[in-house]
Amino acid sequence: MRLVLIERFLIVFVSDLYAHLHSRFFWVWNLLLVGGVGFILLLMWPDGLIRGFERPLVGVGYGYALSSGLILINLHLIEGMFSFADRYSVREWKQYGHFSMSEIVMAKALSIVVLNLVLIMNTIPLGLLVVFVDGLSYTMLGTVIMRVLVIAVTTGWIQLSIGETVGRFAWLVSGIVAVILIGALIITQMTLWILVGISMVLLLDLILDFFGLVFR
């Protein structure tokens, strides 16, 4: 029976999503993220004094901790410790499922968006607590979450490309990317549209292989 495009897309998407959600390691990720962000907040928690005229830094800490944690998770650097048995790579989907690259990549990209949404939503209660200590306003919390979501999703997309193209030394490249991204996040005001642009180019390259056309 010939499947229509949307069905093939949904098969990859749901399969990838379930592979994560039904894995205990995804929940370990969740717990590590909550614990890590919580630990950073504990370190930066206002000590009961209004220091000078500055707003408590805990809001900034929340944003940085969440972004850094999600970068590490999305670059699969924590994953080395675990294995997601039910998750298939792009290559496997293409080889065994006979799906097109565009269907697989789009489905996996959407799956990354949903998984990051779940991860971020788990830490929102901590963000709300930060609002109650005046580390962030509600508007700023919304902005931070949107920014973190964009960073996390684009990092996930970059990792999708790295995982499929680099091969054996993917963890090394991912490590370098993580250092660059976290460094850029903390040291400079990372401009999101550059990150979005890079990730879109890499995704398109996965689908169209135009880098292969150019550099062959």
Partner: peptide, 18 residues
Amino acid sequence: LASGVWHGPSRYFLIIMI
């Protein structure tokens, strides 16, 4: 000014929350 007493949730509340 450095001693403006702050009345927000304490660290312990954060630990309970986590």
